[in-house]
Computed example of a mutant assay.
Amino acid sequence: MTALRRPAPWQGAEAIGQAARDCLRLEIATYPKPGLVSPVDSGAHDDMDAAIMNRSADALMPFFARLAAAGAAGAAMAGLRTIGIEAETAMMAATGGVNTHRGAIFGMGLLCAAAGFRARYGAPGTLGSIVMHRWGPDIAQGPVALRSHGTAVARRYAAGGARAEAAAGFPSLYHIALPALAEGRRLAPADAEAARVHALMALIAGVEDTNLLYRGGAAGLVFARQQAHAFLAEGSVGTAGWRARGIAIHEDFVARRLSAGGCADLLAMALFAGLDAP
């Protein structure tokens, strides 16, 4: 896939929607990713592959554009939710009923709305800070999907999940993912994929991913974090043999049916937020 380019200018709902789609596709194309779908294999997922996920990303592009336009129009959270529900319906139609990107619809969708809001009103700060100040209280207090995996995990493990992350302005995005992308580019300046792998490992090590909790419980989350920490401590993508070590971790995740889906969403969102940098 070609390198991501910041929409020029960083405005226009369609350009924002296309950039969001491209970031999802770039995350899908990355390998190795512990337990996650890539063009190489389906990871720990029996119901999806890279082709299905790419169809999902393409189907979501017009809805990301609509969310950007809604943000530019000053829409409240209720209006964004309505578009998000329509996006989920389109995703399910494109994938034959497989939940490929529900988390990304929420997180990436909010960033698109914030990008649209900034383009219209010139709001300062990060896209995450716009989300927090503009829609944060409504995100935190809004309706909860009673049957979602994230809700079940939040009840059982008192995990904050995507809602808490968004309401706080996506701290994992700005304190973990974006700095890790920059560090990965320093470690492997000629390998953009390596930088993405490094950022994903940093996210797995530092984020309480509700997908990991749902699939593996507390023990699964601890195992995942330990594996990611070890990869980083051994030099990450800056050392010879990093790809073989990454593949071995991926295979261990698959054997345990673990998948860091929340971290994958955050990686795609970090690629998008990185386009917003001056």
Rank of each mutant, 00 (worst) to 15 (best):
E86H: 08
A114I: 10
D276A: 15
P278D: 12
G217R: 11
A219F: 00
R186K: 14
F231Q: 01
R118T: 10
A15H: 04
A72P: 09
G74T: 05
V254H: 00
P171R: 03
A140P: 00
G17N: 07
G122S: 08
A270T: 04
G142D: 03
A194I: 06
G160D: 06
A29Q: 14
A119I: 11
A264K: 09
Y31G: 00
L212A: 02
L275N: 08
P179C: 12
R185D: 04
G97F: 11
E208H: 12
D41A: 13
P137F: 10
I16F: 02
D252W: 00
P189A: 11
R256F: 02
R118I: 07
F223Q: 13
A65W: 07
W135G: 11
I105D: 04
A233S: 14
S38D: 08
T100H: 01
R225G: 14
A115L: 10
P9H: 02
D58Y: 00
T100Y: 00
G150D: 11
E183S: 09
F106W: 15
P137I: 10
G122I: 11
M48N: 07
A69H: 03
R185H: 10
A123T: 12
V254P: 00
L4W: 01
E165W: 12
M48E: 05
Q18F: 05
S172H: 14
A15V: 03
T30V: 09
R81D: 05
A159W: 01
V153D: 03
R147D: 13
L60E: 05
N211H: 14
R196P: 06
R6M: 02
N99D: 05
G17I: 07
A248E: 15
R102Y: 00
A114M: 04
R196E: 08
W10Y: 09
L213Q: 05
L67S: 10
Y214N: 09
